[in-house]
Design a protein around this nucleic acid. Sequence first.
DNA 1: ATGAAAGCGCTAACAG
DNA 2: CTGTTAGCGCTTTCAT
Lengths: 338, 338
Amino acid sequence: MTTIYDIAKLANVSPMTVSRVINNTGKIKDSTKQRVEHIINELGYIPNSAARSLISKKTKLLSLILTDITNPFFTKVARGAEDKAMELGYQILLSNSDEDPVKEAAYIDMVLSTRVDGVLITPTGDDTVNELNRLTKHQIPAVLLDREIKNFSGDAVIGDSYEGSRKLVEHLISLGHNRIALINGPAAISTARERHRGYVETMESSGFPIVNNYISNINYKTDNTQNIIQTLFSLPENERPTAIFAANNFIAVRTIQALDSFGFRVPNDVAVVCFDEIGPIDNFNPFLTVATQPAYEFGQIGIQLLIDRIEKEGAHQPNKIVLPPKIIIRQSSVTNVD
Amino acid sequence: MTTIYDIAKLANVSPMTVSRVINNTGKIKDSTKQRVEHIINELGYIPNSAARSLISKKTKLLSLILTDITNPFFTKVARGAEDKAMELGYQILLSNSDEDPVKEAAYIDMVLSTRVDGVLITPTGDDTVNELNRLTKHQIPAVLLDREIKNFSGDAVIGDSYEGSRKLVEHLISLGHNRIALINGPAAISTARERHRGYVETMESSGFPIVNNYISNINYKTDNTQNIIQTLFSLPENERPTAIFAANNFIAVRTIQALDSFGFRVPNDVAVVCFDEIGPIDNFNPFLTVATQPAYEFGQIGIQLLIDRIEKEGAHQPNKIVLPPKIIIRQSSVTNVD
DNA sequence: ATGAAAGCGCTAACAG
DNA sequence: CTGTTAGCGCTTTCAT
């Protein structure tokens, strides 16, 4: 491996001069500069970032901790994050927590030993506050993505789950539904709380009762919905829900599959709506009615906030960016739509 | 930031003893070990990997260079790669080349300066051989993913594009099609060459002519298919293709969109088949007939090969793993299928 | 079983 | 404009 010492020797200068040429600092005679640069190119020399990090305490590495990149929402987040990071000279370390606090903690360990400059994270739940505190203790800035956390104030990029929720429920109500079930994420996750709030308030303001049996909480990514669907549809026909609000795309898919397994068709027997698209290509799967969120921007803005926090001196106020959802009406809720 | 010196001072030992405790090397008296470990936990000390890398010349970092993680095939590859890497104690740096050799080269630069231990890469084309040679020059192992490269022999995980291609075309022929168009990727990419070969040989062995106008090459990810579709369907009705073999999922989507814009319906007017799923959830979008590839395994195996190469002493023979595709028949080619 | 010295590759601080 | 010295945090080597 060639080092600045090799270059220095060949160029008859000190290593320090080589360093100056590489970093474009200080004043170097043009001829020396040329000579050094020529040798650098000749040998294909590339600075060792470990050595640099040791001094600068910066790695130009960021950690992106998502629950699962396989979820199209997070796929696009990752793409936005990567693009912005690259643009600003950083690289991204990817991790999937799978909604599992144990995996999440293990990743924070790695993050800490890799000494990344910052972390953009979708926390698994409110308890993630402990991991965030570990980061803070080591002065590693973190930005929350998609989910806020109780007892933690810091930068965040989130969607407007309350608003999206209201609009989805209003849409269902406008179609004549009033027995609407909510299959939600865990109450320890802010998006689930907000979607619940949107659901409840919209139902109430439309004068419909909140039926507790209609509301359930499951894991956003793993739990299946068989039991829930079975229970809901064992009710007498005039008490069954006519529509289901699935809190996210994965829950929606599992819900539709469960419905299918019991012989119920969407939307003929039941209408289904949810948050976020189920595929990477917008408007290509013309099936699910969704509250879609600008995932790519989540990633971009998240990284931008993070890098601002890293590079800008002084502790400025926490920045909270709220990105609005967009309702797209498709066949899973109405039959007569393209 | 706490260092082994801080620990050493508090434990009344030398830094070397602390290092030994951390790495579990040498013989340490149990009592000293306990004492040191206690203080380590107390302070929440975590070793600085930059310092370690400087000595060991290892970073425990791998680079994953894909064309676009937004493509569900690569999304799953990334997931498989990340899982396997984590399991083996490595972290993954994610990059998207967007099929652009310039971006690809820029990423290789970063890779080189970050001193990753290895690279798993989907090359943009045969010219990527130059970038791979740069890696080799710096003794950084690389494993090819999904695509092989002319004039480069090394480890690779690829699919059987020829076989998948044959089966897709055979499927179309069995449905009575013989005017089948191929919208392929660039000839500089091995998968495109193999898919072309599978198409040509299957057509010929079935006694059908190869119509040159039916074959076109475009970028896997960016070029649109408007012109191609327009040209094909300006032909007299009895010369138009009745089926289209799109070489990958993204081309298929753009093809269907283009067909749609000209008022042609799939599969009623034209059958469409392609490689790889268009969504992350298998069997949920019951539309496209595809040759699907085990993307998750691509990632897992790729990382496994890479780490073997990194950790196993001695230069063993290049390892080439070929993963078979699976044909899934859906509505884009036949109307009477679930 | 433990420690001291040296050095990995680079740059900040100071000298000239 | 260029060089010298020291040290980032850790581990290897050699002593004890």
